[in-house]
């Protein structure tokens, strides 16, 4: 009976994951491997292609700050998308059984500390060693192009690529990802909720990947790497705030990053 409860928790979280994160790992991998036929993504590979592809970004409703500099403009689009992604993660968090029963301030703390880690994990399936899907899979941005941006923008994505390429070798399924995201969100909670979700993840990984030894331990280990990536990311954004006098940081992202590490 206990295993049945854990399975139903896994099922519930997968349903919620599919509802809030429509670009699943399975879909992203299909796009990246060119299995979507005529619907291949627009490719950002140099500065010239950046304004050309902006119509794809516009069509998903992102607000752009008026600025002539294409890099800053792109950076604002990324911020808007990140804020929207935070909203999606919040809705997912609210669907984790027991989460909304926690004190509201505790919910805020869990989200504040977990949300960037969740976003990085969710980004991993959208990446391969050559680049990343953005804008709901409508654009593929090459890694080389991101490395060619002026400092400090060029330093933003490389650590995420290095992490993602390694993380993707674990070959998790969407159903595993749903549970792992819940584990990350609840990892700072002190009630017994986190234990139930992590036991469900352990069981799920054993069922889904019977030949992959120690997969649960390997997945949990990734949380340590993630913490470092988030710390470095927050420091980089804080540096940007000081050095880019024209740059505004989205108020929601400011809230999350203020006093975070």
């Amino acid at each position: 009976p206990e295993a049945a409860d854990l399975r139903s928790l896994a099922k519930l979280l997968l349903e919620s994951y599919l509802k809030y994160f429509p670009l699943t790992k399975a879909k992203a991998r299909a796009i990246l491997s060119g299995k979507t036929g005529d619907n291949a993504p627009f490719v950002y590979h140099d500065m010239k292609s950046l304004p050309e592809g902006e119509r794809f970004i516009n069509c998903v409703g992102l607000v752009q700050e008026p600025t002539d500099e294409v890099q800053l403009r792109f950076f604002y689009s990324c911020q808007s998308r990140s804020a929207e992604a935070v909203r999606e993660v919040t809705e997912f968090a609210k669907s984790i059984p027991g989460f909304v029963g926690l004190d509201l301030n505790d919910q805020v703390t869990l989200l504040k500390y977990g949300v960037i880690e969740v976003l990085i994990i969710m980004w991993a399936p959208l990446m391969n060693k050559d680049g990343t899907l953005i804008s709901y899979g409508q654009i593929f941005m090459t890694r080389e192009f991101l490395k060619s941006l002026r400092k400090p923008f060029c330093d933003m994505m490389e650590p995420k690529f290095e992490f993602s390429v390694k993380f993707n070798t674990l070959e998790l399924y969407d159903s595993d990802m749903a549970l792992f995201l819940a584990v990350i969100i609840l990892s700072g909670a002190i009630e017994e909720l986190p234990e139930t979700v992590s036991t469900s993840l352990e069981l799920q990984l054993k069922l889904n990947h019977p030949d992959s030894l120690q997969l649960f331990a390997k997945v949990l280990q990734k949380m340590t790497d993630l913490r470092q990536i988030v710390t470095d990311h927050v420091h980089l954004i804080q540096l940007l705030k000081k050095t880019e006098v024209d740059m505004c940081l989205h108020p929601l992202l400011q809230e999350i990053m203020r006093d975070l590490y």
């Binding site: 409703g61 919040t90 919910q107 989200l111 809230e255 203020r258």
Partner: peptide, 20 residues
């Protein structure tokens, strides 16, 4: 609470992308 007012709002009710 003031420091995290958007997060509070997101947790208490859904906010549309436009409002964000």
């Amino acid at each position: 609470k003031e420091k995290h007012k958007i997060l509070h709002r997101l947790l208490q009710n859904s906010t549309s992308p436009v409002e964000l």
